[in-house]
Amino acid sequence: MLPNLFFGYFAIVMVVLSLLIITRRNPVHSVLWMLVLFFHIAGLYLFLNAEFLAAVQVILYAGAILVLFLFVIMMLNLKEEITAERFIGEWPIGVALGISIIMLVYFALSKFIQGPVGQYTIEAINKETHTKTIGRVLYTEYLFPFEIASLILLIAIVGAIVLAKKRG
């Protein structure tokens, strides 16, 4: 009963926060609501026994990506933004599309059958901490994708500098 109530709180708050993010007029308000949303997602990760990912969520998303967004908002003309039209003229079509995707997922979910479970039970993970277990899987089974991820980050650094520097 208590876990269900806990999940219900998180679910309702997260849906409301997502709606606030896409409807607020002022982008700064959107970013701040998104900060609250990311903390709730981190809480949900803790609830699912993924404490390393909860920490990464707070550090990377709330700490790095949202600060990037706030830096860019400083360049925008907020006075004009507050009076400008928020949505495109055809917004009911977008909402109808969203509702149809929800229906699709609902029907797909009723046919869902859970597959066989793996070897990483909560007891096995707790025996040698979550971070150590995830690190071992990451650096053995997924070593090559890990290297590719480093390449993606390198491309992001170079690309951001090339795109944003003054043309000279």
Binding site: I21, F69, F87, I101
Partner: peptide, 29 residues
């Protein structure tokens, strides 16, 4: 279900907002 609802809110936000910054935030969502 929760994940699908938040995903759809992100999709709708990406489609209906005019501001590119909010569209990028919808992608993050």
């Amino acid at each position: 279900g929760l994940s699908a609802v938040i995903f759809v809110i992100g999709v709708v936000g990406f489609i209906i907002r005019r501001n590119i910054l909010i569209m990028l935030m919808s992608v993050e969502l």
